[in-house]
C-alpha cells in the first residue's frame, strides 16, 4: 500500500486574469480521463472562477476543446495589442467549455472585458453568468504569454525585423 503524500511546495498552475476594482477570471487546469468513445486517454478539464468584491462563483470540471489554450492565448494577444479590439477582434468562444470573452471598449492602456460563462451546459435554453471588468492591456498580454508557455510555446512574440539586434 502506498500512502498518499501531498506534493508540498509544488504550485498548481492557475491562470488568473485580474481587473481593476477586484474582479478576476480564474482558470484551473485539471487533467481528466477521456471518454471511452474517443481515442483520447486524457482530456483537459478546467475549473472556471469568476470573482468580484461581492461574489465568487466556480464552475467545476468542464471539458474544453483541444485547442482551447492556444486559441485563448491567440485571442488575448490580439485583444491586448490591437488598437481597437472592440471593433477588430472577434469575440472568443469555447462552446465546449461554455466560456466567452469579448472586449466592450478600450483605451491605449485599458480594456473593458465581458466574460460570459454558460451556467449549465446541459440546459436549453442556455443561461449565462456575466462579469464585466476593466483591466490593463499589460495584464491581458501577460495572461496570453503564460497560456502560451503552458502550451509549450516559448517562441518570441515580437517580429525580429521590428526589433533588429
Amino acid at each position: 500500500m502506498r500512502i498518499y503524500t501531498p506534493l508540498h511546495g509544488v504550485k498548481r498552475t492557475v491562470f488568473r486574469l485580474p481587473g481593476f476594482g477586484g474582479a478576476a477570471l480564474f482558470l484551473l487546469p485539471i487533467a481528466a480521463p477521456g471518454s471511452p468513445d474517443t481515442e483520447e486517454i486524457l482530456v483537459g478539464n478546467y475549473d472556471i472562477g469568476l470573482l468580484s468584491p461581492d461574489r465568487k462563483v466556480d464552475y467545476l470540471a468542464r471539458t474544453a476543446s483541444p485547442t482551447f489554450i492556444s486559441d485563448l492565448a491567440e485571442y488575448l494577444w490580439a485583444a491586448g495589442s490591437e488598437i481597437h479590439p472592440e471593433k477588430n477582434v472577434p469575440d472568443f468562444q469555447d462552446t465546449e467549455l461554455g466560456l466567452g470573452i469579448g472586449v466592450v471598449s478600450s483605451t491605449d492602456f485599458v480594456l473593458e472585458l465581458q466574460i460570459t460563462v454558460v451556467k449549465d451546459l446541459g440546459e436549453i435554453p442556455l443561461e449565462f453568468d456575466l462579469l464585466n471588468f476593466e483591466t490593463s492591456r499589460v495584464a491581458v498580454l501577460a495572461m496570453s504569454r503564460s497560456l502560451r508557455v503552458f502550451d509549450g510555446d516559448y517562441s518570441d512574440d515580437f517580429d525580429d525585423e521590428e526589433f533588429p539586434e
Partner: peptide
C-alpha cells in the same frame, strides 16, 4: 514580475 502592479494594487485594495 509578470503581473501588472497597477492592476494588482487596485485588485488587492478592493478586498
Amino acid at each position: 514580475t509578470d503581473q501588472d502592479v497597477e492592476v494588482e494594487s487596485s485588485f488587492l485594495s478592493a478586498f
